[in-house]
Write a protein that binds this DNA or RNA. Structure first.
Lengths: 326, 326
DNA sequence: TGGAGGCGAGAGAGCGCTCTCTGGAGACAG
DNA sequence: CTGTCTCCAGAGAGCGCTCTCTCGCCTCCA
């Protein structure tokens, strides 16, 4: 249980600490026989490099942060596990730690100082409040940061997103191809980029759609549907801007005596687990969350490697998942 | 953007590095005037301690790991966000990082070496495979570890769990008090502690219950219900050992022409988001996940503080959440 | 054979911090 | 007034690693 240091390894291998270090870090300019001696010494002693000591001199923490919104917004979010998994896939083989931070009082400041004092090499920001000053301060300080989702107001920051507009258009085309005549949409909050884009994309495809506003919550889906049935009782197709919201929509339709999809076709957005537990299972627009998360990690690593490299954005294509609801 | 060191702070404050360090770490034996001078120097220079340097000498990483099963088992798991949130609540005020690791090839070994080389101070293990040798190796090495959920075979390890047996009994009592005469249960996998305990607890309350086996998945809920309706068509109350499974149960009952809860009462377990998106909303047994996670964090910190302290277990009380299904 | 050139290994100086140990100053008892 | 005890600040030695700089040795060409 006693700690093995590089010094120890070097002694066992009969070389200097510097040479042992070269072998550990894979430098090429080491004689083959010495390299072998060091490798034998490493496995015989069970040597593990001390990351703290390494970080101290390389000024790399070998850790990135994932900044999440508060629990309330995260619980029931279907994507968390996929995001973590996607990032992990990229980051783990490199020995980089993924540090989770959930927003609470002062969390974002904490992240900022972790970044400044070299405890974190970069951060991925999820669900950023448009009024949040932290992303701006991060890019101003030239610190590596990637946003999940397009920022509401344009800023020179790297982000990864799905083509929300195209996804909503996919939904619109689906409803039209089902022969729906009276089409409506229940929107997301219009102070988010996703909410705006999904509405715009849908209207581009179905210009005469009835628009009722929601805010991505289940409750708002229920309320919006009641309103919709009052103002537009002959509706026969509805695009709901999130699956979670759609789980509030379908029961209201059923209670009003409308069969889904026979009387009213419903298309959701997200392909979340809610789409599968809903009855009937939801036709929905899928975002490749895990791949997007992996790309965020890659973008972040690039920025860490090459500080102050220009901001880029990567936009993934959505796809339609046809199930039973529309 | 240049880095400020303790040396710098000490110089500005006109004291030695040691005294500055004492102030930073809150040691009491520092003269009030010097303490103030140092604090002024800290804020004027914007000093942030370098954690790597500190870790190097204190041998504390100030980071703990959360070891999760693979993405497949995690996606759709309702509890991840709550677990993270609960742990964060305890750990963040102490400046301790929460490192997420999702099981993939070699992840657990990685966690072990992170622990050994001092990159992690301890780990919380979630959903551990009973055949997994890692927990055993961790306790053998005297490394701080806490399990989420009772281990299947007894071992001297600290764990936090909900009283699964009592929770299942709660469900049984509910069905009986509703006047159900022909009661069944759809179980979880019997190679997990939760699956076993929920069945045992339910049978203790309803000894003559019909037992059909499932494995916590939605699909298994569907299949089990079909089987149940065939072998026991007069069933009027069913305890489903997880909410997710229950979302597969209810539609089958509906299709068979049974109203929930009028013809068949359904009680789930977990109080997950699936319980809310289900129609009707599920009566279910709630586990205080977030509080349990916080307790896991506290237990882990205690072990880190006092290595090789005896293993303890903390068992939380479940509660019944009455909604519409039973 | 001698000198230049190149390549690989070792010596040693830190990285920024903590912590022990020492020493000086002040208080108080003898 | 001296000796002892206490208390607090500073000096300095690392923690384990990387990386530059230097030096030695071997090769190759003149």
């Amino acid at each position: 249980m006693k700690r093995v240091t590089l010094e120890e390894v070097a002694r066992v291998a009969g070389v200097s600490r510097a040479t042992a270090s070269r072998v550990v870090n894979g430098a090429s300019s080491v004689d083959e026989s010495l390299r072998h001696a060091v490798q034998r010494a490493i496995s015989s002693t069970g040597y593990l490099p001390n990351i703290a000591a390494r970080s101290l001199v390389t000024r790399r923490a070998h850790a990135i942060g994932l900044l999440l919104p508060d629990e309330r917004r995260m619980v029931g979010d279907p994507h968390l596990a996929s995001v973590v998994s996607g990032v992990t896939r990229v980051v783990r083989p490199l020995g980089i730690h993924l540090v989770l931070m959930m927003t609470g009082p002062g969390t974002r400041e904490q992240a900022l100082s972790d970044l400044r004092c070299g405890r974190l090499d970069g951060v991925i920001l999820v669900h950023t409040d448009p009024a949040d000053p932290v992303p701006g301060r991060l890019i101003a300080a030239g610190l590596p940061v990637v946003l999940a989702g397009r920022p509401l107001k344009p800023m020179p920051i790297t982000y990864v997103d799905v083509n929300q507009t195209a996804g909503a258009a996919l939904a619109g085309r689906r409803l039209k191809s089902l022969g729906c005549k009276r089409i409506a949409t229940i929107t997301g909050p219009q102070d988010t980029a996703a909410g705006q884009d999904r509405l715009a994309g849908f209207l581009a495809e179905v210009p005469d759609a009835v628009v009722v506003h929601g805010d991505f919550t289940r409750q708002s889906g229920t309320a919006a549907t009641e309103k919709l049935l009052r103002c537009c009782p002959d509706v026969d197709g509805v695009f709901v801007a999130s699956d979670l919201m759609a789980t509030g929509v379908v029961p209201v339709l059923h209670r009003a005596g409308r069969q889904v999809p026979d009387d009213v076709a419903v298309v959701g957005f997200d392909d979340s687990s809610a789409a599968l537990t809903s009855e009937p299972e939801l036709t929905t627009v899928r975002q490749p969350i895990s791949d997007m998360a992996a790309e965020m990690a890659r973008q972040l690593l690039r920025q860490i490697e090459q500080p102050r490299s220009p901001a880029t954005s990567v936009v993934f294509a959505p796809s339609l998942v046809v199930r039973d609801s529309g």
